[in-house]
Design a protein around this nucleic acid. Structure first.
Lengths: 239, 239
DNA sequence: CGCGGCTTTGATGTTCATCAAGTAAAGTGG
DNA sequence: CCACTTTACTTGATGAACATCAAAGCCGCG
């Protein structure tokens, strides 16, 4: 599988013009033009297909990654060589920051859940810019803090719920935060859902079937319809 | 209970001279003398008794806290109004960074587990210094990243273990990382252990008793002796 | 077609939470 | 200092929640 560092299907260097990119926003507002251009010139934009690995846990950090489009999962191996998904992230969630600063190796594996596009910047240049540009560094600081607290909150939230509550909770998450719609296609396999909320595949399936039988959701393979949102919310809150 | 913002038993302003303080290290190395002195002058050092609350979740952030001495716990309320401990931290762990940047309110409650000493700096001044001093900001960036990955790693680690494995794991943690000794006094009540690893008080006690019966540890109230480290390690790894 | 991966259901046993009851320890007021 | 109250700790019994094991259906792909 490809990573951002090896050759990928298509990438090209281009100036940044995405209006909703935080890096671009901070850079264009706070960096001197020469530095800003240097950063932009070093940018690589790459497309990744569903299932492709963008960053691999344990590899040396060589680029700073920014998710521009698509949907990704961030995961880590447990002591028992099982995968644990710590976050599902959309563009501008800046979740990749979590695996950039604290060590020389990437801490997490990042995988595309949908076809995705990521921009990347060279490690050393990124560090240089951060060390020389205050507002830029401060922006990164805020983002990393936000990203990490989100992950931690999620762990705390999940750990207080039983399995039905966890399933209900992530279904609502997908509907509210990812797809903004009560009908959507699950971007995760049953096994990945299990890895996300810390339970077995069988129980994920069992509980989804149960929700269907109870008229709370409709399922057909990966497609999900939330039928009785109120009941689902109750289960998420009190389960 | 007192917080850092209200009046506390004893605090006084003083220059920084702690050799092992990261803030002091970064400040003295990278800040201009005038700024450095301004920061030092704004410092408040305060003592906290065991059980005292240093920072309270939900309160407005008004000071940046640095743990100088002692032992603290970082906790958060769950959806169900139960407490969840997300970290036990010693001086220089910089865990307080996690609750400084990402919102206007403290995200976590910080409580002294032993008599502790904390230094604090005004919110706005800290922000000003970070925004104006690159190396300082970069140092903070590294620390926050390190602190958050530690918390996340811990959640991932714990979530892959059964209860016996979790208990074994934290006992070894205390011995190896906190007390550097196989005999120590638990700084946590049974209930707090439960809150740290996500289980009930009764089972904490049951498993501790079981370990004692099996000759793996010795317990007398809060005092713990690790007798059979190898067996404990096995349980931590495979349980 | 046949293979392999993902999904589903059922049966079974283990792990864990809950409930109940009792003991030890620690704080409180006289 | 002792009686009293409260809080922390401990053990056992029970049932619910969850994991594991086994087997079969489904579906895409060569």
């Amino acid at each position: 599988m490809d990573t951002i560092t090896s050759s990928v299907p298509s990438h090209h260097t281009s100036k940044c013009n995405c209006e909703d990119c935080f890096i671009n926003l901070i850079a264009s507002q706070h960096l001197a033009p020469t530095i800003c251009n240097k950063l932009y010139d070093s940018k690589k934009e790459a497309k990744f297909q569903q299932g492709e690995v963008l960053i691999e846990e344990g590899k040396n950090i060589d680029r700073f990654l920014y998710i521009k489009d698509g949907l990704i999962k961030v995961s880590q191996m447990t002591d028992k060589n099982e995968n644990r998904i710590i976050s599902i992230a959309r563009p501008h969630d800046n979740i990749t920051l979590l695996t950039f600063f604290s060590s020389e190796k990437y801490l997490y594996t990042i995988t595309a859940l949908e076809d995705s596009v990521a921009c990347s910047f060279p490690y050393q240049l990124m560090l240089d810019v951060i060390k020389s540009e205050n507002e830029f560094a401060f922006g990164i600081l805020n983002m990393i803090s936000f990203a990490s607290s989100k992950v931690i909150n999620n762990f705390v939230k999940l750990s207080s719920k039983n399995l039905r509550g966890r399933i209900a909770s992530i279904l609502l998450d997908f509907a509210d935060n990812i797809y903004k719609n009560d009908s959507f296609d699950l971007p995760l396999s049953r096994k990945e859902i299990a890895e996300l909320i810390g339970m077995t595949v069988e129980n994920v399936i069992r509980i989804l079937s149960e929700f269907k039988k109870d008229g709370i959701i409709n399922i057909g393979g990966k497609s999900i319809d939330i039928v009785d949102r109120q009941k689902l919310q109750l289960i998420a809150n009190f389960g």
